[in-house]
Nucleic acid binder design. Structure first.
Lengths: 132, 132
DNA sequence: AGTATATATCGGAAATTATCGAAACATCAT
DNA sequence: ATGATGTTTCGATAATTTCCGATATATACT
């Protein structure tokens, strides 16, 4: 298979996943660190980290380290894939993702250490019937 | 998971696949029947049929039956997902997909029965190392 | 140094997807 | 009706993906 086709497919796969799409959409208004995302989405921090790794691999996200924290943000529109623009608009219209953003705002209002020390504790453990 | 998020993810998954993306891109200039696609891409007809089923399920493709043949075409831009426009542009720029289109033109120049009677015979049998 | 905390990676079980030949189904041609 | 041909579905196997707890790594604080 041609390299370029493979790459495009990999980038599409990266966003074809509920958690990764939620994370992507969450980052649109601005950067967030791993634990802010984990707290916002009520998902284990390791899952968020893996989601971010895929989004980074696909070239949609960049990181900025600041001490203990790694703040992730979307790459510029110019660097992103052409299909991303339409996708983000489509995503922003979804009720659940709007809810996510509202939660993120509340989380951002708190100091980061306060948010993050909660994450380890109250991550959900029950597995859903279908993949999240 | 919210229904709408799930739907969007399903639509993204539908195009996150080399064969399905090739088929999608192949249909952009105009309708083709299953066997024309199979011949163009040198892929078993059943694989093409399955790819088309997914693209139909995702709402990207519609069918028009004409006797033995089922011609598939892209749905109108208005009905398609917002991200599809950018994706098709991105796809059209890929060398391999341009090659596919050139082959499709050659195939279209032949009478359909001539094309299709070949398909059953010379489909490739060797499995590639990675998924196609 | 030692502890706490944020992030990344690993391991591995479970679910999902991919693939294609075989068989079924639908329509045409004689 | 019979056979030929285009399309779809089925069956089964292999490959991949998902998910999260456990572990590892990195930085901060005291």
């Amino acid at each position: 298979m041609a390299e370029e086709l493979r790459t495009l497919v990999e980038r599409l796969k990266a966003v074809s996943h509920p958690l990764r799409l939620r994370v992507l959409s969450l980052l649109e208004p601005g950067e967030l660190c791993n634990c802010q995302i984990a707290e916002t989405l009520q998902v284990p921090a390791s899952s968020v980290s893996e989601a971010l790794r895929e989004l980074r691999r696909a070239g949609f996200v960049t990181e900025r380290k600041d001490g203990r924290w790694v703040f992730m943000s979307l790459v510029s529109r110019e660097l992103a894939a052409p299909f991303l623009q339409g996708l983000l608009e489509e995503a922003a219209a979804l009720p659940e993702l709007q809810q996510d953003r509202a939660r993120a705002q509340a989380v951002k209002a708190l100091a980061i250490p306060v948010v993050c020390s909660k994450v380890q504790r109250d991550a959900p453990t029950e597995r859903e019937a279908t993949h999240v």
